[in-house]
Design a protein around this nucleic acid. Sequence first.
DNA 1: CCATAATCGAGACGGTACGTCACGTCTTGAG
DNA 2: CTCAAGACGTGACGTACCGTCTCGATTATGG
Lengths: 190, 190, 190, 190
Amino acid sequence: MTKRKRPPQRRGEAMVGAVLQVTLVQLGVVGFERLSVPEVAALAGVNKTSVYRRWPTKGELVREALASVLGEPPDFVATGELRADLLAWGRGALAFAGSPVGQAVFRALLSADDPDLRPLASELTRTTKGPMGLLTRAVRRGELRPGANLELALSTIAGALLQRLHVEHRPADLAYLTQVVDLVLDGLRR
Amino acid sequence: MTKRKRPPQRRGEAMVGAVLQVTLVQLGVVGFERLSVPEVAALAGVNKTSVYRRWPTKGELVREALASVLGEPPDFVATGELRADLLAWGRGALAFAGSPVGQAVFRALLSADDPDLRPLASELTRTTKGPMGLLTRAVRRGELRPGANLELALSTIAGALLQRLHVEHRPADLAYLTQVVDLVLDGLRR
Amino acid sequence: MTKRKRPPQRRGEAMVGAVLQVTLVQLGVVGFERLSVPEVAALAGVNKTSVYRRWPTKGELVREALASVLGEPPDFVATGELRADLLAWGRGALAFAGSPVGQAVFRALLSADDPDLRPLASELTRTTKGPMGLLTRAVRRGELRPGANLELALSTIAGALLQRLHVEHRPADLAYLTQVVDLVLDGLRR
Amino acid sequence: MTKRKRPPQRRGEAMVGAVLQVTLVQLGVVGFERLSVPEVAALAGVNKTSVYRRWPTKGELVREALASVLGEPPDFVATGELRADLLAWGRGALAFAGSPVGQAVFRALLSADDPDLRPLASELTRTTKGPMGLLTRAVRRGELRPGANLELALSTIAGALLQRLHVEHRPADLAYLTQVVDLVLDGLRR
DNA sequence: CCATAATCGAGACGGTACGTCACGTCTTGAG
DNA sequence: CTCAAGACGTGACGTACCGTCTCGATTATGG
């Protein structure tokens, strides 16, 4: 008769992974402010003391959880066709923004007062500038207007999606993305 | 020797005004989640019981405070010159977004879970569509492309400002606004 | 249908009385070290926050509880008959030491490290010297030896009872008390 | 360059001795309740796991520590002179009660709830009756009153010292001891 | 002008969640 | 096989707010 008194402890990497994953989910569900460290611990099947040992602050826990995701920029292959490449990148961004993890990132960073999260905001901004190379090459090819503010164009695309999703709270599908990209591309072209 | 034991009570309208004003300020400073009803009462020089009597819920208090502001849409005069009018409207929007009250609105609504605040989100969205008439008239004049998605254009402008202010956390001045408007207008024109 | 949602709050004096009484009982049952403020609150039917508000420290709570008892020295009437009076006083002391409250006092004070309880120890010691007047008058009457250390005699009686009860853990009845008193009185007489 | 990474392990008897010694010291310093097994281990330069292996319970650890001391009753030589022998025994008792180990014993046993310590209480009581033989011989010699309760007399002496030291918290020197012994002896004599 | 009701201030209280602490158990690896 | 080192689960603790309740004081209102 085997006495299995309690589930075996998950240590080290196993525990860290479970906690960070649950943290991301909770970030997407209730947001940063309402995220509770004890609740994260409970959902992860871990004692809250163990969580506090590794991440003394909620900010540190969230920062590590988000960093484990933002570290992998959604690379995309450039075919050379400007509009198609921009749409491909946009699809990736939309998929990210719609995923639970993306929800977490935006809900946490949109008006981040916690100092621990500040560096992540610039990280996210940097991701926004991903397809910058596409545009500069298009300018060199003469496909876009020479003096255009490319950085602003990308910000505008991202902002349009942001407005749609988190202010108007309406879904952003591929058609919507296409319209935005076309609008901005037309503005850039000449 | 006059003994002024304590400040005279403020009742009725006077108290309501003081509380709502403090609520708006606090919304801009700490946001909706961290807003504390007892703290609002203290800052307003009012007993917390009085606040709870009138607004049983934090959501109701904030809703009434925001409603007292969003009720006044920032009207603007249309000169007939499309670009100038759009810029004028944008200046108003920027001024609002930069004011403490605007900070309050955006911080409260950007990811609003509180059911009491949902109606306010659509209110804000409606404001965004303010200059819709300008664009439709411009289309009729042949100044803009006939099939253009005008609503999306306005959302894009608003989104660009939002991205600039609340994601990249960089200031949005008149020059920035002009660039955004020109980019979108160029996209709409041909 | 009367809705009695929860038991009505006990305020002020009522709550203080209930808490102090439970504190005394618990002192007698588990002693000072193992006494738990939250448990006292629960047994008193009071929220633990309320207890911590009035008595920030366990020591203060216990001190006030004990002070409310030690404040009433068990007066006894002096008949003039030395032995009978001493026995009467001893009976009172035994009754006190055997009562739950007395248990509380001794268990709390016997090895009191808590600085809050130090003054109570001297209070208890003072009580021990209660029948000092009896002895001095007996000396003046020539009933006791002139140079006798009366204070030491009383300490000895008290100590004998203490040893019996709290070291040997055997009951101390009236017969035992009588033997002790007689032993000491015989020592004092000649 | 010799790398002495850490102190060499102490095993078996060496470790046991170190732990028990530290346990006695801590008993005298902080008492039984506040004695912490991990702290004892740390002070003994031993890992707490090792302590828990041998003594699963704090009570068992303390019992073994105290037993290693109480096993050696403080023998004294009887000269035949009753008062002198009694004083000699009392000096030993005082020395014991004043030593750190004695402090430990009394603080641990005075109101011992831990069931592991109960047998030690009777052990201590038995020690109190050490000089019983002296008194019975004195009775046979006619030096003391025949019907006297000798056991009670010894308890009374011990109790007087106990009262002095642990209730009144005043020092007990040789003069005090002498007075107590004389008081009781006078009571016993006739 | 005064009496009476509505409103407000002041503070005690119950309740919930939190982060900390010390303890004892367990796992792993070194001696 | 024994011990050291450290991670982990467990329970209790004291604190910080929050929202409710009670009571007394103040203000407005109608006779």
